[in-house]
Write a protein that binds this DNA or RNA. Structure first.
Length: 309
DNA sequence: GCATGTCAAGTTGTG
DNA sequence: CACAACTTGACATGC
């Protein structure tokens, strides 16, 4: 009997939309919806949700055909779902049955092609906020994404901590307390990501390790906001935590639009400079979301540049 | 058609 | 103190 070390397998993820491929997601604003009767609102929303689930299916087919192993689903897949005035439930949409059937198709496609799906709630979602209203709205949005994740077979809902309010430790205590209010379908998918202005890997890893919440390690944010941990250390602790929880690690990569020396490095470039790809990541079993403006072209380009295509 | 301002939501840092 | 940035474009309006 031969014992072989399991080969490292990196998968690369596309974020939300396409640059060149004609796959588009539709939107509608609350302002527009407000001008319509409730019936007309639901008809409009139903058509858009249907369109977007069809586009999602196309997106996953494209990914499977092009060696892209993960896809981040845009938050407004069902636009304005949790809006206080024009929000709605799936059951209210005229096309609910076909939408649900298409979601089930996406879910089996994801399984059959071993694609990893994630969500990344917007910046207004702040579980650490001292304002109850903000936390309440955040939980509402997370429940919506949890529902979609169940329907579509998504594994990760990746959140930023958001505000520090001058005291990061207290903010993290509030965040931990507010986790209690989350339903299981959200909590089991929740991850925390280091950002580029407040919360570093050194801030988050102890909390994540204690609460058994995996951390998504964004190396670009870490380079913009260093904390004394090396990239290798942050990578190692992130990977160890995911491994302990029996799951595949998750990382983010981007390159600075204007280089590392000219102005702020925070804005994202069209493509990933392979020099920015941590060499230590090449030996991992992990998912790497590529945050680059050229979208699918950047994912495909990076795999080629690394000799993995 | 095409150009332009707007879009629910929070927080931080910059000019 | 106003405003851009953040995962970002797409929509709605007016010419």
């Amino acid at each position: 009997m031969t014992v072989r070390k399991k080969a490292a397998k990196l998968r690369f993820g596309l974020c939300c939309i396409f640059r060149k491929e004609p796959i588009r997601f539709r939107q509608v604003t609350a302002r527009t919806l407000r001008q319509l009767s409730r019936t007309a609102q639901l008809a409009r929303l139903s058509g858009i949700c249907l369109h977007n689930v069809l586009s999602l299916r196309q997106a996953l087919e494209f990914a499977a055909d092009h060696g892209i192993g993960a896809f981040r689903i845009l938050s407004p897949l069902f636009p304005r779902f949790t809006h206080p005035e024009v929000g709605y439930r799936l059951e209210e949409l005229p096309d609910r049955d076909i939408i649900a059937a298409l979601c089930a198709e996406v879910r089996s496609f994801r399984t059959n092609h071993d694609l990893r799906l994630s969500f990344h709630p917007d910046q207004f979602n702040v579980l650490a906020s001292p304002r109850p209203e903000v936390v309440k709205n955040t939980i509402g949005e997370l429940c919506y994404q949890g529902m979609l994740a169940e329907l579509l077979g998504a594994e990760v809902i990746n959140l930023h901590v958001g505000g520090a309010y001058g005291n990061k430790e207290e903010a993290l205590v509030r965040l931990a307390a507010n986790l209690e209010g989350l339903p299981g379908e959200v909590l089991k998918r929740l991850t925390l990501e280091n950002d580029d202005h407040s919360f570093t890997p050194a801030d988050l890893l102890p909390v994540c390790e204690k609460l058994s919440i995996p951390m998504v390690y964004d190396v670009h944010h870490h380079r913009c906001l260093p904390d004394g941990l090396s990239i290798e250390e942050a990578t190692g602790r992130t990977a160890a935590l995911w491994r302990k929880l029996g799951r595949e690690s998750y990382f983010h990569i981007s390159s600075p639009k204007n280089g590392w020396l000219d102005g702020s490095p925070k804005p994202h470039a069209d493509y990933i400079d392979p020099e920015d790809f941590p060499s230590g990541w090449l030996g991992l079993n992990a998912t790497i979301d590529v945050e680059a403006k050229a979208k699918e072209l950047a994912v495909i380009g990076l795999r080629q540049d690394l000799g993995l295509a």
